[in-house]
Write a protein that binds this DNA or RNA. Structure first.
Lengths: 199, 199
DNA sequence: CCTCCATAGTCAAGAATCTGAGTAGTCAGA
DNA sequence: TCTGACTACTCAGATTCTTGACTATGGAGG
């Protein structure tokens, strides 16, 4: 039960519709929590039912109506409670790392391709996050913003996201290059990779 | 359906019991995929049913019997297929980042404490992973090992884990120190953090 | 005119994951 | 002797997440 808190935290920045949240309007949020639109809509409905957010219908013409949500005082209280509760350890779940772990046992070609692809995606995210950081801090420099800004939470999480993506990119490129240099591509290793421990 | 491939990849290193897998015998695996013991046991049973791993009963005295598993040829084929399939984008899910995102809206004290705690955990992991890397590469230096070693998958994923934990540690310490310097601790921000956009 | 894309959602079903407890023997320490 | 910790695993139930639809309107491009 933490998607709810991610949504609450995202809504601290103002009023948003489920659609906006789903669009990853704030890369920062997508950055530490990932969810499909359906989940967000469902969660917003639940949150409203629990009185932690309040929604209002906005009638639009030329396009469908939408519902905009903001955090209520009860929602802030709930966030406060959540902040005090012990944090669960974070974890990565990454298909690509699984593939790299297994790369000695299979043909490396597709893994190399995916590492390069991932590096490109990470690079794009680095740029987006860099822009977002500049936008968040405005004209002042980072040091000053962090000490005096009123809303530093999103800035800090974006920093973390940026570092993560940057590191991801570097690692993917190193790993891909290494696999290319080893010439592991094209040939599947003989037999299975595991060696019987003198069995 | 990717826990199964994580388990297969982990078993490429040899023969292991569910208990060993669960213990995170290989930090490298815990590093890119997290699962509870129950899941691992269930997955191993399913994998065996599908013929992707084979298990054998090992009778022990003085302690319960166990079942040791190894990957079958069909399992390697399945890993090969998995490696070729498009990878889903990775994502982090982290309670602590949610809390930091919301830190402007709530009392920072517990968040600071959790950042420091997390930094300590990350530091411990950095050391464990560092040792694991040294053990994996043996006497040769990294460059040489990566070019000539037979089993570099786990080494690469450990490298990634190490970089991640190291970055986590640095960020947590920076963020905690910043929040302390801002003196955001002890006082809950007045009212809710969101400001009505001139509503 | 027809199709695709964007907006703005909703619903249902199934897979994956987590919570929590239970079994059962061995060994170490108070 | 009792308690707790370690090995080794199992089961049931709840929650969460993913997959894959489906509704409906408006505008752009071919």
């Amino acid at each position: 039960m933490a998607l709810r808190h991610a949504v609450l935290a995202a809504l601290l920045d103002g009023e948003f519709s489920g659609y906006q949240l789903a669009k990853g309007f704030d890369i920062g949020v997508a950055n530490f929590w990932h969810a499909l639109p359906q989940q967000l809509y469902a969660e917003l409905t639940r949150l409203e039912g629990d009185g932690l957010v309040s929604g209002r219908e906005v009638v639009q013409d030329g396009r469908p109506n939408k519902r905009m949500f903001r955090v209520t005082d009860a929602g802030v209280t709930e966030l406060q409670r959540f902040a005090t509760a012990p944090a669960k350890p974070s974890f990565i779940r990454d298909d690509l790392l699984v593939k790299v772990q297994a790369v000695d046992g299979v043909d490396a070609t597709p893994v190399i391709a995916q590492l390069q692809e991932r590096a490109a995606v990470a690079e794009a995210k680095v740029e987006v996050l860099g822009k977002l950081l500049r936008r968040l801090r405005g004209d002042v420099d980072e040091e000053e913003f962090l000490l005096t800004g009123q809303r530093i939470g999103p800035y800090l999480t974006c920093q973390r996201g940026l570092a993560f993506e940057s590191e991801t990119r570097a690692w993917c490129l190193r790993a891909a290059e290494l696999l290319v240099r080893r010439g592991s591509a094209g040939r599947a290793p003989s037999g299975s990779a595991h060696r019987r421990p003198a069995g």
